[in-house]
Design a binder for these strands. Sequence first.
DNA 1: CCTTTTGTAATGCGTCACATTACAGAGTCA
DNA 2: TGACTCTGTAATGTGACGCATTACAAAAGG
Lengths: 91, 91
Amino acid sequence: MDTMRSPRRRPTHPGAILREDVLPALKMTQAAFADRLGVSRLSVSELLHEKRALSPGMALRLAKLLDTTPESWLSMQAAVDLWDEHVELTE
Amino acid sequence: MDTMRSPRRRPTHPGAILREDVLPALKMTQAAFADRLGVSRLSVSELLHEKRALSPGMALRLAKLLDTTPESWLSMQAAVDLWDEHVELTE
DNA sequence: CCTTTTGTAATGCGTCACATTACAGAGTCA
DNA sequence: TGACTCTGTAATGTGACGCATTACAAAAGG
């Protein structure tokens, strides 16, 4: 089945999903989105641009607002973290 | 089925598994274990006592040494993180 | 007893999420 | 074209945290 194997390339950053799918679907402005989440506009902007990791707190806020599971967001981030750490521990 | 539901109590910290199952099974000293992992003895001790979170780096080191998946360790930690964050965001 | 192992405190370092403030570039629209 | 909105980004400060090193006292066990 080969499910959940180590990827050859860097896994998708959760910010990409938010940027490409979620926000467009919501037709909501970044600032408005940030408001709804209860975080700063900068937090949203940098997350969308993959400048920072999706924290447990953000996972919970997203889950509440979007009616998803916080686990799904966190596991995406974990995949990225493992990839990055592996690179760092390897190089 | 009710798999992966929100737990009523704080999920098991990965350090507990290491403390109660892994280390005893290995019959290895904490210091020796730390050596094998390539981290300090203090890092192991505090992890075992749940004084710190299991980082992505530790997940990879454990996975390599114990022949498990880093994901399993990280997801345990994620469950704890979500629980703690939820408490904090709620209180 | 004496040695090993362990818990823990102290200190320093680097990283990171987050907030606030500020400014410049784009896009929109009257 | 001028005004307004949205966005990217830099600057700065704060608190949290993983990890290393050093040190010491308590526990464990031959």
